[in-house]
Simulated assay, not measured.
Amino acid sequence: MADIRSLHEAVAELIHDGDTVALEGFTHLIPFAAAHEIIRQGIKDLTLARMTPDVVYDQLIGAGAARKLVFSWGGNPGVGSLHRFRDAVEHGWPAPLEIDEHSHAGMANRYAAGAARLPFAVLRGYRGSDIPARTPTVSTVVCPFTGEELAAVAALNPDVTVIHAQQADRAGNVQLWGLTGVQKEAALAARRVLVTVEEIVETLEPRPGAVVLPTWVVDAVAPVPGGAHPSYAAGYSVRDNAYYREWDGISRDRAAFGRWLAECVRGE
């Protein structure tokens, strides 16, 4: 059952050094505020999983929180590369970063298998790719009914999944809507779940196409208005496009990044 906690309390309770952590959200509802709290608390040695690691993971990697990235695409959407990610991979700064790369379909199926508590998922994919030769989490399986050889991907069960949503009620039931990626699957696959929300409401109003996570699959809810910025929360905010453009310049230079981290995240 979900407790309503402050963001500081929830992160301190649920996320620990060495955990596998998924901060999911597609285009919007990206849990930036939670990522910044992870940095402030000095949590280290994380395996970060995400279908589309963008600026939020660039910041975590640059801050030295990560030792490994499990992902299917990485970039600053509409702008270019992730320079802190590249610096870690190419130069080991601020620490070496191990990578485990997949396709989008492969990552989505890994979460789905984890949510179903199955050991792996089966899909058509990876054929002609060199990814299977570079990761132990992709293999093949022969269909017992047709004899067709298919790709198999190991289930992904994060220690913690963190998502941002629009609303939760006082019992800890969560509702999100708009572009939803794999938030539901990532939450159901995880051992612990933290949700930051725009607001706490008395009653969740039914919305066509919305995703509702019942309180019994969520460990903590933290009210954090604007917690997805610079991404957006449908119905509450708009995307801060200037932030993404400005990030390109900030992240290219280690010293500039360090100044941004001290001022904008750590409040020094």
Rank of each mutant, 00 (worst) to 15 (best):
G92H: 04
G209A: 01
F26G: 01
R50P: 00
A10N: 07
A210P: 00
E268F: 07
A154P: 02
Y243T: 11
G64R: 02
D240S: 14
A116K: 11
R50H: 13
S251H: 05
V212F: 01
R127P: 05
R191D: 12
R207T: 13
N173C: 10
A66Q: 04
I43R: 06
E205V: 10
G125Y: 10
R170D: 04
A115N: 00
A12G: 13
A66P: 10
L7E: 00
V212Q: 05
V182F: 08
E199A: 14
D130T: 15
H28K: 09
A186D: 04
G226Q: 04
A187C: 15
V79E: 08
G78V: 03
L29F: 11
D3A: 14
A105F: 09
V11E: 03
F71Y: 11
L150N: 12
G128Y: 13
R207C: 00
A222S: 10
E199N: 04
A121K: 12
R259E: 12
I30K: 07
D54H: 14
E101P: 11
V89L: 14
P208F: 05
A187P: 02
A186Y: 03
V195K: 00
I61Q: 04
V11Q: 05
V182A: 07
D100P: 12
E24T: 15
V160W: 02
Q59L: 13
Y244L: 07
T196D: 04
Y57K: 00
R245T: 13
V212C: 02
V193T: 15
I15F: 02
T135I: 14
A95T: 14
E263H: 15
E246D: 13
A49K: 03
A220M: 11
G227Q: 06
V79S: 08
P31K: 08
R170F: 14
A210S: 14
H36R: 15
Y244E: 00
Y126V: 06
R192H: 13
W73K: 12
G92T: 06
V56C: 09
R127I: 14
A255W: 10
R252L: 09
D19K: 10
V201W: 10
E205D: 03
W260Y: 15
C143G: 03
A65Y: 02
L69N: 08
A189I: 01
Q183L: 02
L179D: 04
I39K: 06
